[in-house]
Design a protein around this nucleic acid. Structure first.
Lengths: 227, 227
DNA sequence: AACATGGTTCGCTTGTCATCGAACCATGGA
DNA sequence: TCCATGGTTCGATGACAAGCGAACCATGTT
């Protein structure tokens, strides 16, 4: 009386924004820690932990403890292969329109990811910085160029102070809602702080949303525009 | 600013018991009507209709109207391929344990599928009838053999009367909860009726569950045992 | 024309699950 | 030893969506 393989179960497991983001992140990078995954999925650690527990139980991912870190990775190439098919299918079928659920548009637009800027505007900033040669990405490493340092200093951020911190200066953080990168690390945090103190934007109370004033957004775009 | 392909959306679409059952049925048979699919998924027509509407919008299935029937089929080989991967993955990962949700065990055991018996006991009956050569399956067609007619008559069912109805005598109905077939059609309905009148089982009020008495189940098994 | 049957739409109820705050355990570094 | 950090557990909340009953439209059959 063997039970049938339950497609709905595994598909349902994948069919959640946060879990899908986690799995996709694991597709890109080999192994990631729980907090990194939480960040990638834009959820808190607890939530990510719960999701990871379920994925683990379902044997879609595995863990390897190393010191106080737990590195998660996809269990199998079977998992990766299934995910890949789903990506293809989603692409082919134009799943953009299907996007269900309300998902606050303000959150998509701009939000706090830990302490730095994410969302469409976060991606915009990141892209602009790269386009103008202010940061250079090789692999998943990110470095601030000399020109970039000048630019950021001109924006009112004390880069040398940031360098003295233990925290990495520049990191690229994958944004699930647009599947593009934005700037994290000490510099990402400092930039967002600066945006707040300049009054260009403020955090919406009780939410991760970052609300830009019309003026603030214009100023930001102008500042980043080439030339 | 192109939106990313949303894996979660398509996976979530598949990740529902009823929809998964529908899609799997469409994998097996080429094209099926809405009611057949409702039956296969063990939901009402309305529910199936809603699901089909969503699958349609997501372009996972297509419809073809023919008379007053609407024949649904998988949109693509891409869809089929993705489903197949998921089946493989589910199988490989042993998704049996993962089976989430309460899903009344009584319903799994035995329940009414429209007017005939489904669930594990339904499958048992069907298998027994086939093993003893009482029904013969070729493709999706099902025929009652001479020996089968004698057996069923001995059970107290007037087969010749059933033959005069318009309704097909024997049909194999796919049971999503065990992914095996059980007996449908006029004969399937008559058998279940007979089981009720013999007092071997009764319908649980307000539910599709069919509750067998210990005696009734024993009697049923004895009757179907070879020899 | 009446009726059965296939199919959809609407409104409502209910269950499930994602999410987070808070508290907690474990590991490593000062 | 204390503290910071990575990670999990627990409980409560909230929202989405699956499901059904009822009413309805459409097509075909008598």
């Amino acid at each position: 009386m063997d039970a049938p393989p339950d497609i709905a179960a595994v598909a349902g497991l994948i069919g959640d924004r946060a879990r899908a983001a986690i799995l996709m992140s694991l597709m890109a990078d080999r192994a990631l820690t729980a907090t990194e995954l939480a960040r990638a999925a834009a959820v808190t650690k607890q939530t990510a932990s719960a999701h990871l527990a379920r994925l683990l139980e379902a044997q879609l991912v595995t863990v390897a403890q190393s010191g106080r870190h737990r590195y998660y990775r996809l269990a199998d190439h079977q998992v990766a292969s299934a995910l890949e098919r789903l990506v293809v299918l989603a692409e082919h079928v134009g799943a953009r329109q299907v996007t269900v659920g309300p998902v606050d548009p303000a959150l998509r637009r701009a939000r706090v990811c830990y302490d730095h800027l994410a969302g469409e505007l976060g991606v915009f900033v990141y892209d602009a910085l790269r386009d103008r040669g202010f940061v250079r990405a090789d692999g998943s490493r990110l470095t601030l160029t000399a020109g970039g340092e000048r630019f950021v200093s001109g924006f009112g951020v004390d880069v040398t102070a940031l360098r003295h911190r233990r925290r990495p200066l520049c990191l690229a953080c994958l944004d699930w809602s647009v599947r593009r990168h934005h700037l994290a690390g000490a510099l990402g945090a400092a930039l967002l702080q600066r945006i707040f103190t300049l009054g260009w934007a403020h955090r919406r109370k009780g939410s991760r949303a970052v609300v830009f004033s019309a003026l603030g957004e214009r100023a930001l775009r102008a500042r980043l525009a080439a030339g």
